[in-house]
Amino acid sequence: MKHFFTRFFLPCVAIVSLYACDKTYDTIQVEDDQQIQTYMQQNNLTGFTKDTSGVYYKVSTPGQGTQMQYSDKIPLVITMRTVDGSISATDTIINHYADFLGYLEKYRLPKGIQIGVKEGLKNRGGVIRLIIPSNLAYGRNGGTTYFGQTVKGNESLDVTVRALDVTGLPAYDDISIKKYMAANNLTGFQPTTTGIYYKIGEVGTGSPIAADSLLTFETTGKLLNGTIFQQPNAVSLPLNTLIPAWQELLPLIKGGGTIRMIVPSKQGYGTAGSSTIPAFSCLDFDIKVTDVAVDD
């Protein structure tokens, strides 16, 4: 009997153990969708469409421009937050992107943005809100965003994207500048036909400034969120090497003069920006020209 029990019982234990270990786990796509569904319910988010990729999207402003392709350079204004609220990047002054739509991942921006903008928004000039699953964001391991924040693994994102048409940038810049001036009580500024707003503090009594002048100047340069990117240290440069706004307006003053100008992106560093200035940024310059000489 003992021998029979041993022969019968041990195989049964093995069979039970085999079935007990045969546990199924949800895929990352299923986990992401459950996380997104919970987030949307908690925040009463309705009217979203689910793309076949798993991205949820809702167009708040339909684009009126031409249809976007991955091979197009598209100026984007992006706000981004994780669904758990741990990360928030919502500064529309610096959250700018202006390279090819198909290059977003190269710049550490989620593939879900690329999919949502092209397949959901479709046309330039519109605004779209995206709920992006982690597998189309920063994945299981997380990562650092284009804007410098660190997103933990398995974290879905709530993203809003404004896709600008390059032809509409002057109007967008003008709205941004007027909001900035109103918020900071900046009065007495004169507009130019190129979209610059300026105010002369002192005309100056020194030499006139010409296109071929070598200028020594001090300037404070700021983004419209108040971030200072240039401190007032003395610098000497030919006028014809400076940004278009300076070439246009500095001849209005002389040596010893001061001028403040709020500059649209086209008259500053353009769509591309620079190493310290985000793409298509409007800028605030306070300038004092301390010396004017002839450039040899």
Rank of each mutant, 00 (worst) to 15 (best):
K266F: 14
Y70R: 14
V55I: 06
N185R: 03
T194E: 15
G268H: 08
V117T: 11
T290M: 01
Q247I: 08
Q247C: 10
V292H: 01
Q114H: 13
F5L: 15
T150H: 13
L130N: 00
S265V: 10
A182F: 03
E105N: 15
F100S: 11
G54S: 01
A272P: 01
G126R: 00
K2W: 00
S88C: 13
F189T: 03
I200R: 06
I15A: 05
L186E: 01
V13M: 09
L18E: 02
S53C: 03
N154P: 00
A163N: 06
P170C: 07
D174K: 06
K178D: 02
F280D: 02
K288R: 13
V13T: 04
I200T: 02
P191N: 09
I36F: 06
P62R: 08
G206H: 01
I209M: 04
G102N: 11
I287C: 07
E202N: 13
K266E: 15
K106W: 05
S86V: 09
D158Y: 03
F9A: 12
K2T: 08
V292M: 00
G273Y: 01
P208G: 00
T38E: 10
V127L: 03
V16L: 14
P264D: 13
G54Q: 01
L252H: 11
K199A: 05
Y146A: 15
T192C: 10
P278F: 05
D22N: 13
G112W: 03
K106S: 13
H96D: 03
D84V: 06
A210R: 10
M40E: 04
R81N: 15
L169E: 06
I28D: 11
Q29D: 10
A20P: 03
M261N: 07
T27S: 15
I228M: 12
A279T: 04
P11E: 04
V30Q: 14
S134C: 10
A182G: 02
P232L: 09
T241S: 12
G153I: 12
L121E: 07
I228Q: 15
I74V: 15
G257I: 03
N43M: 08
F9G: 02
